[in-house]
Design a binder for these strands. Structure first.
Lengths: 339, 339
DNA sequence: ATGAAAGCGCTAACAC
DNA sequence: GTGTTAGCGCTTTCAT
């Protein structure tokens, strides 16, 4: 915690024997400046160890080199996504600010976080899309906002994850194994990935010409406790044999599901076939290894950052581009068996 | 992305019929101001929807309501720690800025991140403590820095995790089970948790009056690949029976270890007893459940944030306080057997 | 091409 | 107590 001597643009100007504005122009790569003065200035800058004060720059220019990320930080997938965003941002010198929106009152948290604070752009992933309060908060924001696999009216899509293909394949796979009673346990019903997945699930049933009991589509959530409860409810059906397979669309939930199975002496794939979304490789190390739907988390982060950066640079393009669609992968391991 | 009409302190002053400074005083809860003018001002503020411009505030006051977090974001533990930090920061209205230091050139990343940017404080967790470059970078910083379970010369400790007790207990436990050849696979050798754990490991051996083959203390790292390699090296000793138990001090590494076991038909606890650090509950769901050392990640985050906040408020206290020590928990499950 | 000067919105020092 | 004023460090006219 040493003392930092602060050298300002003034010092540079004096040292280089030029005016304030000229130094500014040099820094910002302005056109109207001769090569020699430029050189002279950069020498002084180096000599004095000058670093522009970003706060002052921001105040004057309304650029902040900073973007805000709103997510539910409890979601384990988030860390990798954040890393992907960082990687992309590093190139362009932006800072990432983090805000946990949690599960409840996301709008309130976003609002107070944003109050008076300045960012050049925002990446948004909320637990509910149909949040009036949220829309109100976001409508006050004057910088580009981009969603992370969410459909929020008035907000441009940044990245969408294509669960459709994988969920369909997973369902077909289970169907082909002879399962008829497949329970799809989604996350919250109010977000895009759930809608997409449910639709794909239905499609697969239709394509196979089988009829789907809509009670088999269960709205879950983001926690292992919810997984527990859903699974507890499902237990009778499983024991009766009317449910023989489960697809879990969230990793935390999957933990709860596994726990209930364990507690009730249910083994996979013998007593129940299971498929989940993969957030980290431990699913592969479970015994037996679990069949999963994998999302390329790093790519998702990098992608959403790139889209946002683009909108920041070209504000009039805002919302005029389709969100980046990121594919998922269906990986068959050993958690499902013939019926 | 609507238009935000910006109302400034000037507007408020005019509306309330007072001077600029008075409004400022009202906002900042200054003493010298009468209740009625204060009330009048807050009415105007509400009426006009005034929100102070933080950038301008920062520039003038050198306070930023912002703290920086430097971590290796690939570490899964980090997400929960970050949440703990956030929780604490929310109370005081600080923003968290995230910077991934990765594995290599942490100093460089920190340097460029910090360049010209302003924070009120920094939370630091680096992959190596003995980094000359790092010390140089940090010595230029003029705000409180606090470490997350690291010993960095010249930097105040924020939080230290007390692995000592748990590692000792884990070792004693293994020893009591009849294991003599216990391999301790640590993280990088250049960080505090490794030093602490190795010392505790040795102590346990000494206390039991057994002699420890120092080749059994193995420096690992932060990735599952390193875990793989270490385990591959260990394989002959395991098969020969000179190593019968493994303690892994890192979760990613543990994945690699498990993989190698799987690939070589080794089962725990039958062929090898294993203990690891727990970062998420999936270790409990492995079959059999794994005996672990658990760290309270949320508390760690909250703790380090609190310590930093304290130093920010009382800069002259900087470094004069002991780091907060956070206990760990040793949880016996079913991954170790008698020898 | 470059210097001078006017603020960005705010806080703090100084008057009264 | 409260108004006025001088900047914080920078970018951006506006002259030249």
């Amino acid at each position: 915690m040493a003392q930092e001597k602060k050298v300002t643009i003034k010092d540079v100007a004096r040292d280089a024997g030029v005016g304030l504005g000229t130094v500014s122009r040099a820094i910002n790569g302005s056109a109207n400046i001769s090569l020699e003065t430029k050189q002279k200035i950069f020498e002084s800058i180096k000599k004095l160890g000058y670093v522009p004060n970003q706060t002052a720059q921001s105040m004057r220019s309304n650029k902040y080199r900073s973007i805000a990320l709103f997510v539910n930080i409890s979601n384990v997938a988030f860390a990798q996504i954040a890393k992907g965003i960082q990687n992309e941002l590093d190139y362009s010198g932006y800072t990432l600010s983090l805000c946990d929106v949690g599960e409840r009152d996301a709008a309130g948290k976003i609002d107070s976080f944003l109050a008076g604070r300045k960012f050049d752009g925002i990446i948004l992933s909320v637990p509910r899309e149909d949040d009036e309060q949220l829309h109100k908060v976001l409508s006050k924001v004057s910088v580009p906002i981009v969603t992370l696999d969410r459909d929020v009216p008035g907000v441009a899509g940044g990245v969408v994850i294509d669960y459709s293909h994988s969920v369909k394949r997973a369902t077909e796979y289970l169907l082909s194994l002879g399962h008829e009673g497949i329970a799809l346990i989604s996350g919250s019903g109010k977000i895009r990935p759930t809608r997409i997945s449910v639709a794909a699930f239905k499609e697969a049933y239709e394509a196979a010409g089988k009829k789907l009991d809509s009670a088999r589509i269960i709205e879950g959530g983001f926690t292992s406790d919810i997984g527990r409860n859903v699974m507890l409810d499902l237990l009778p059906d499983i024991q009766r044999g009317s449910v023989t397979a489960v697809i879990s669309l969230n990793n935390q939930m999957f933990h709860g599901i596994l726990q209930v199975m364990r507690e009730n002496g249910l083994e996979y794939p013998k007593d129940l076939s299971i498929i989940t979304v993969e957030d980290y490789e431990l699913t592969k190390l479970l015994n037996p290894p679990v069949t999963v739907i994998r999302r390329p988390l790093l790519d998702i982060g990098a992608g959403v950052a790139r889209v946002l950066l683009q909108y920041i640079e070209k504000p009039d393009m805002y919302g005029k581009q389709n969100p980046l669609s990121i594919p998922t992968e269906f990986i068959i391991r050993e958690s499902c068996s013939k019926r």
